[in-house]
Computed example of a mutant assay.
Amino acid sequence: MSRITRLSAGVIVARETPDGWRFLLLRAFNHWDFPKGMVESGEEPLAAAIREVREESLIDDLEFIWGHEHTETGPYSRGKVARYYIARTRTSEVSLPVIEELGRPEHNEYRWVDFEGALKLVSPRVEPVLEWARGMMNGGVNRTD
């Protein structure tokens, strides 16, 4: 019998700087990841990913210049699968708003990091996602300026 999976969706948020691309990572407890969260009933995964970025960072200017391609992790945490898209932002200021249900921000910290810095922070589950993003970004797939 196959395990029913739960889908979360997120965005690898990238910002172009004079020193190259920087990725937004958020820390919850001791785990660093890209903004993501559960896809709600009836919600499209891409819409959920955009919503989660807005809710978790207040970034609302995502540009999907690499298209709507995505990658997924293998199942983890009782069958959950995380789907990630890539988008560019021109926003550098990040806010970690208080989540009303929690009474605190969902994340403890954020960082804009380069690829190597991101590799040092993310878990082995997220490393292939980061590698996929680098390949997509370096290949310029569907890129428009």
Rank of each mutant, 00 (worst) to 15 (best):
R3S: 15
R3W: 14
R3V: 12
T5C: 14
R6P: 04
S8N: 13
A9M: 09
A9Y: 02
A9D: 02
V11I: 05
I12F: 01
I12C: 03
V13G: 00
R15S: 08
T17Q: 05
P18V: 06
G20H: 04
L24D: 02
L26E: 01
R27Y: 02
N30L: 13
F34H: 04
F34N: 02
K36Y: 06
V39L: 06
E40P: 09
S41R: 15
S41Q: 14
G42F: 00
E43W: 01
P45G: 11
I50H: 02
E52Y: 03
V53L: 07
R54D: 07
R54F: 09
D61Y: 08
L62T: 00
I65E: 08
I65T: 10
H68M: 12
T71Y: 04
E72K: 12
T73Q: 05
T73V: 07
T73P: 02
G74Y: 11
Y76E: 14
S77M: 15
G79Y: 04
V81L: 08
A82T: 07
Y84W: 05
A87F: 00
R88S: 10
R88T: 04
R90P: 09
T91V: 08
L96E: 05
H107C: 07
E109I: 10
Y110S: 07
R111Q: 09
W112P: 06
W112F: 05
W112K: 06
D114S: 06
A118M: 06
L119V: 11
P124E: 04
P124Y: 03
P128S: 08
E131L: 12
A133T: 01
A133F: 00
R134C: 08
R134Q: 11
R134T: 02
M136H: 02
M137Y: 02
N138S: 15
N138C: 14
G139Q: 07
G139K: 05
G140A: 05
N142M: 13
R143C: 07
T144S: 15
T144L: 15
